[in-house]
């Protein structure tokens, strides 16, 4: 099945209602969404493998809680793209505003441009590949999953990080509390190569990246560490 939904002619409510309805949008279908014009909550809560192409810039929470769809945004996205995604893929050809992939539990988020502050905040298993830079406090309280940044990272990267793995090619302005640089072993190079490949990056060697993660010093409260906060 293939269809186009024009948001000049219908509403976000109608769009989501159709895409969330299995009989209206059975698995395997391809959908084009036109004239998005910054609408919020576009293509949220889809729990099937649909292929969705969004033509234009979106507002907040595009592809929120995605659970299986492959969504491409030909443009930039507002705050909280793919928040709490659990499966599927979201690909943004432009830039992403704050909190991209926030609290994501699974799936892959690829941002061709830059991502603003708090990219990957509270991530819980999602993989995120940003081809440009990420803003400050990215991977804040990141629990699990992987964040790959081909550009630079802003201040306080990985603040209060748990078990997420961070790979950055460019400069890191500063590391947050309990985030440290870690050695790149073979297993890390292997997983990084897989992530880059999944994001369509074929011309960047894994050796160009440095790995960051948790020092695990704040996992148990100790008064002598209070100054770290």
């Amino acid at each position: 099945m293939s269809a186009t939904i024009d948001l000049k002619k219908t509403t976000t409510r109608d769009l989501n209602s159709r895409l969330q309805n299995e009989s209206a949008a059975p698995a395997g279908g391809t959908w084009q969404i036109a004239n998005v014009r910054g609408h919020h909550s576009v293509a949220v809560g889809i729990d099937r493998p649909l292929t969705i192409e969004i033509d234009g810039n979106t507002g907040y929470f595009c592809a929120g809680m995605n659970h299986g769809a492959e969504i491409t945004v030909k443009g930039s996205v507002g705050q909280g793209v793919a928040e709490t995604m659990s499966a599927g893929k979201v690909h943004v050809t432009g830039d992403a505003s704050m909190a991209a992939g926030a609290s994501g539990r699974g799936g892959l988020l690829v941002i061709d441009g830059n991502a603003a502050a708090r990219c990957g905040i509270s991530m819980k298993g999602i993989d995120i590949v940003v081809k440009g830079d990420v803003g400050h406090l990215s991977a804040f309280m990141a629990q699990t999953g992987r964040l790959v940044v081909l550009g630079d990272a802003g201040e306080a990267l990985g603040d209060s990080i748990y078990e997420a793995r961070l790979y950055v090619r460019g400069a890191v302005a500063s590391l947050g509390a309990d985030c440290v640089e870690k050695p790149m072993n073979d297993e890390h190079k292997e997983e990084l190569a897989e992530l880059l490949s999944a994001a369509g990056v074929t011309d960047v060697p894994v050796e160009a990246f440095r790995r960051y993660g948790s020092a695990r010093k704040l996992y148990h409260f100790n008064i002598d560490n209070a100054g770290a906060y």
Binding site: T12, N16, S17, S41, V44, Y60, Q79, G80, S103, I121
Partner: peptide, 23 residues
């Protein structure tokens, strides 16, 4: 919250939750 700050954002978040659950 990780993905909204202040009541202008919250209004959009609430709308998203409604969209996720068919209002």
């Amino acid at each position: 919250h990780p993905d909204w700050t202040g009541c202008d954002d919250l209004e959009i978040k609430i709308e998203e939750l409604r969209e996720l659950t068919n209002w």
